[in-house]
Design a protein around this nucleic acid. Structure first.
Length: 943
RNA sequence: GUCGGAGUGGCGGAAUUGGCAGACGCGCUAGACUAAGGAUCUAGUGCCCGUUAAGGGUGUGGGGGUUCAAGUCCCCCCUCCGACACCA
């Protein structure tokens, strides 16, 4: 790092330029202004009521700008981390200056595995570790000069915060989804409906015949948060169960890449599937990128089709789900997932006569074949199953009949059919489905095409549209009509019905961890869950000594660490029958829980009486322009495209149904910032070397004289390519770092970090400073006379461009325009008009607040620029009287003419044709046509 | 494989509705200041031809098309990045 004045040798020059804008001066200015902002509460945004309200009602329009809050990592920040935070800060500052009441703050998503992993290694309690990390990270962020309302900051680990996380859990626990009115309702209302017979119970028994325990079990059946007995993803290395979303396709944990095993276990589940359609439909009302919307749509995975029953000789019917009921006449086999429950009852004792050898898997009986196949399938990892795309399976010796034509078709088990989707059973139609085609080829199953392929078609299964063939009453119909006709027939004949299925599963909500929110749930002797009363919240985490997960092997079973807090594990509550002892729920909530609602707590951070004051909620969360409402701008990485954003939307919708929030969506506009990448260098052995010490020569890279190869990747320890904000502060100051990060490119794009380029942003600030300040005295050099007409025009064009760029988050363009203006001032090398100087400073304000405040003060102002109006372009300066227009011949630029703006076509044509060069070039040519676009160009077509 | 997104100088990137491609910055070249410059300032800088110059040609991943005019619109192809992945 070479700050110009930091070497002792140029002290002489330093004395001459004691007020040159360098790292030392920047550091001093930044410290002073950060102190003043903090003392004056400059960034505090008033609420309409409650403790954070200001004296008078704030008439400004509100704007809620938010970053995805970080996990407070122990390793500290590198320059890639704050990119989004700087972006939102610039936008928030710009909006403050255009008269908005801007809420911008920051919190910490502080529960989670890393603190426990760290604790396991060091013995430091997760809370102590977490608090240290938060303090450290806060210090690093403060140094950037982010304009946050500190009063509103929270950490999900604060007891006063997770008390309300627990409260929300109870709301969900005590609700059910009424499909008739399509929203969640309190469970007490269901009780009334069941008692009145307006809803039938899950097994059809009358409510009044149930004993109290049966009634509780019945209600539990309906709850939005319920105990499910599904197979879970048990990760022994992490000592916890994981959600499907936290497990990779290779059956490993997303965090740490440890093996994950399937285990059946009683787990808390959230009925997010009840909201599948609303989560899908409301996407259309959101200002999010199409790619994120598409990812959510794919994740929800809604598909319409029909359920069809196939009768078997054994009596049980096989239900399949298909999106192509129109192809039913082409069904030539039935394929079940290996885990399908009906396999047991359907499997035949002996092979039927004439069973082809290849169907038997070489086994003596169908049962043996199925058992062998199941064993082989279970020994494959998901990855192997995926790589092995050739179809395998065995016949189970039984047949079922195709309802529409009575055809007897063989039943198979095969692992290409997944138990987790649809009904775990597939009607195999090789003519119209490539997977079925592949399967049919292996087992020599008959192929009947039911859609006529185009004559040129030479593929295998044909999935395109076309007229139905070989399909009796469907013949000639195209796919859509054929589907309708078939579904009508199935419904009329009682063989099936129109249905919808989803890929989305219910959300597995418990973790066998210490460092998470305890459930506000206890159990009595029935083993059924009971809510801890709201007025008994929070259920605080016990201070465990032995909190670390046990080292566990593959054969182990899930075991929550809270079970070791023996005193805490039971509790006395009065739940209506007097004080009784209850067993506590020992699982904790997943990290997603705390991030599902933090935006609401920012709004009313000190409320102990209710989740949020409705007045405050509707003030910040309602869109005055009639949009769906919610956070006005939410900025974060694309990695949360499905999980966090789907969970938070789900919780918000539940709160909306129950009347706790005023709108259906939490985040109106979502913006995904890109990532900062950095060059990383590997030597011959492939070992990463310190990027800082690599030198370039003629496009090749060397580390200690030896050639190294360059790649780009995420900044971090493993690639040895981190650059810390602290290094940038000491070389240039925080404003330069902010400016550089914003100048590198559009906010939503990944961009490579280049330390050598940072100097460019520093130079801009130095030149601005020099244009307004005498570097030897520190006094302002501005003069009071107005700027020249030409400068005035340039200034207002700049204002218009900068405002537009700020509005659309194109900060790189805004900076370019400001640079152009400042370059012009440098070129003129004359004292700058105060009017122009003020405008320039205000435009810089959102980007580089410290130096802007300092310049503002030095040219004679006493107020802060934070709430000063952003300059507005005066239209009268935007139009020049004269304009230089290009003149083209046959589309090629040949000359330019200077004409009055607003000149009519004839005048322009004449000016163009009488231009010397043009006349010269046109000599001897025939003018065929002249295109004149006023104020744009003239194009002469000649030959 | 399917679905998204993107390809513009040596590099990061600009370019409203189709209307002067390469703004702005880095780097590079030359010069100024200097004991010195990895500081600062000034000028130049897409590529090719043209001794300088005037000028000309060419140019936004490739190929075709629409148009007076295409980085921008249409068709086909290639490459890279991201997500999902036997979803019936």
């Amino acid at each position: 790092m070479n700050a110009s004045s930091s070497t002792p040798d140029n002290e002489t020059e330093d004395l001459q330029s004691a007020f040159r804008y360098d790292a030392a001066l920047a550091d001093q200015i930044e410290g002073e202004w950060q102190r003043r902002w903090s003392e004056e509460g400059t960034y505090e945004a008033p609420n309409p009521s409650g403790p954070l309200a200001s004296q008078e009602v704030d008439a400004r329009p509100k704007l809620f700008v938010m970053d995805m809050f970080p996990y407070p990592s122990g390793s500290g920040l590198h320059v890639g981390h704050p990119l989004g935070y700087i972006g939102t800060d610039v936008f928030a500052r710009y909006k403050r200056m255009t008269g908005h009441n801007v809420l911008h703050t920051m919190g910490y998503d502080a529960f989670g595995l890393p603190a426990e992993e760290h604790a396991r290694q060091t013995g430091e309690h997760p809370r102590a570790n977490t608090e240290n990390n938060i303090a450290n990270m806060q210090r690093q962020l403060d140094r950037l000069g982010l304009g946050h309302d500190k009063r509103r900051s929270i950490a999900t680990t604060d007891v006063s915060y997770y008390r309300w996380t627990q409260w929300i859990f109870l709301q969900i626990f005590q609700s059910w989804y009424d499909v008739e009115i399509d929203r969640a309702r309190p469970i007490s209302e269901l009780e009334d409906l069941l008692a009145a017979g307006d809803r039938s119970t899950s097994d059809g028994r009358p409510w009044i015949e149930m004993d109290p325990t049966e009634k509780r079990r019945e209600l539990d059946h309906w709850r939005l948060a319920y105990l499910g007995d599904a197979p879970v993803n048990w990760c022994p290395a992490l000592g916890t169960v994981l959600a499907n979303e936290e497990v990779t396709a290779e059956a490993r944990s997303e965090r740490g890449n440890h093996p994950v095993f399937r285990r059946p276990m009683k787990q808390w589940m959230m009925r997010i599937t009840a909201y599948a359609d609303r989560l899908l439909d409301d996407l259309e009302r959101l200002d999010w990128t199409d790619s994120i919307k598409t990812m959510q749509r794919n994740w929800i995975g809604r598909s319409e089709g029909s359920q069809i029953s196939f009768a078997t000789s054994a009596g049980s019917k096989i239900e399949v789900f298909t999106t192509r009921p129109d192809t039913l006449f082409g069904t030539t086999a039935m394929v079940l997932a290996p885990e399908h429950p009906l396999v047991e009852t359907l499997v035949a004792e002996t092979w039927p006569e004439n069973t082809p050898q290849r169907w038997t898997g070489g086994a003596a009986t169908p049962r043996e074949a199925v058992e062998n196949y199941r064993r082989e399938a279970s020994e494959l990892t998901d990855l192997e199953r995926q790589e092995n795309q050739s179809k395998t399976g065995v016949h189970i010796g039984a047949y079922c009949s195709v309802p529409v034509n009575g055809l007897q078709i063989p039943i198979f088990v095969a692992d290409y059919v997944l138990m987790g989707y649809g009904t775990g059973a597939v009607m195999s139609v090789p003519g119209q489905d490539q997977r079925d085609w592949d399967f049919a080829k292996v087992f020599e199953i008959e192929i009947i095409r039911t859609v006529e392929p185009p004559s040129a078609f030479d593929g295998e299964a044909y999935v395109g549209d076309g007229p139905a063939i070989n399909s009796d009453f469907l013949d000639g119909l195209y796919i859509n009509d054929a589907k309708q006709a078939m579904i009508d027939w199935l419904e009329r004949e009682g063989h099936g019905a129109r249905t919808v299925t989803y890929k989305l599963r219910d959300w597995l909500f418990s973790r066998q961890r210490y460092w998470g929110e305890p459930f506000p749930i206890v159990y009595d002797d029935t083993g059924l869950a009971l809510a801890v009363p709201e007025d008994q919240l929070p259920v605080e985490l016990p201070e465990l000594i032995d909190w670390a997960p046990r080292a566990l092997d593959e054969a182990s079973d899930p075991e929550p660490p809270l079970g070791r807090a023996t005193e805490w594990a039971t509790a006395t509550y009065n739940l209506g029958d007097g004080d009784l002892r209850y067993r506590r729920e020992l699982n904790t909530m997943p990290q997603w829980a705390g991030s599902c609602w933090y935006y609401l707590r920012y709004l009313d951070p000190d409320n102990e009486e209710q989740l949020i004051d409705p007045l405050v909620e509707s003030y910040w969360m309602t869109d005055s322009e009639g949009g769906v409402g919610g956070v006005d701008l939410y900025v974060g990485g694309v990695e949360h495209a499905v999980l966090h954003l789907l969970y938070a939307r789900f919780w918000h919708k539940v709160l909306y149904d129950l009347g706790h929030v005023s709108g259906p969506e939490p985040f109106q506009r979502l913006y995904n910032q890109g990532y900062i990448q950095a060059a990383a260098y590997q030597d011959k052995r492939g070992v990463y070397v310190d990027a800082e010490d690599v030198v370039e020569s003629d496009g090749n890279y060397f580390y200690q004289e030896s050639p190294v190869t360059r790649t780009f990747g995420k900044m971090g320890k493993s690639l040895k390519n981190s650059v810390t904000p602290d290094e940038m502060y000491s070389a240039y100051g925080a404003d330069t770092l902010r400016l550089y990060e914003m100048f590198m490119g559009p906010l939503d794009q990944d961009r490579p970090w280049e330390t050598k380029s940072v100097i460019g942003s520093h130079r801009l600030l130095q030149r601005v400073w020099r244009n307004l300040i005498d570097e030897s005295t520190g006094a302002a050099t501005v003069i009071d006379s107005p700027p020249s007409d030409a400068l005035q025009r340039m200034l207002h064009r700049t204002i218009a461009a900068v405002a537009e760029a700020m509005e659309s988050l194109r900060f790189n363009s805004a900076i370019a325009r400001i640079t152009e203006l400042n370059n012009e001032l440098s070129r003129r090398a004359e004292p700058v008009s105060r009017e122009l100087a003020e405008t320039l400073i205000l435009m810089l304000g959102p980007l580089v607040p410290h130096i802007a405040e300092e310049l503002w003060k030095r040219i004679g102002n006493t107020n802060s620029i934070v709430h000063t109006r952003f300059p507005e372009a005066d239209p009268k300066f935007l139009l020049d009287e004269l304009a230089e227009l290009p003149v083209q011949i046959n589309g090629k630029l040949r000359s330019r003419i200077v004409v009055a703006t607003g000149s009519h076509e004839e005048a322009l044509q004449e000016a163009a044709l009488s231009d010397e060069r043009i006349a010269e070039l046109l000599r001897g040519k025939e003018i065929r046509k002249v295109i004149v676009i006023p104020d744009k160009l003239v194009n002469i077509v000649a030959s």
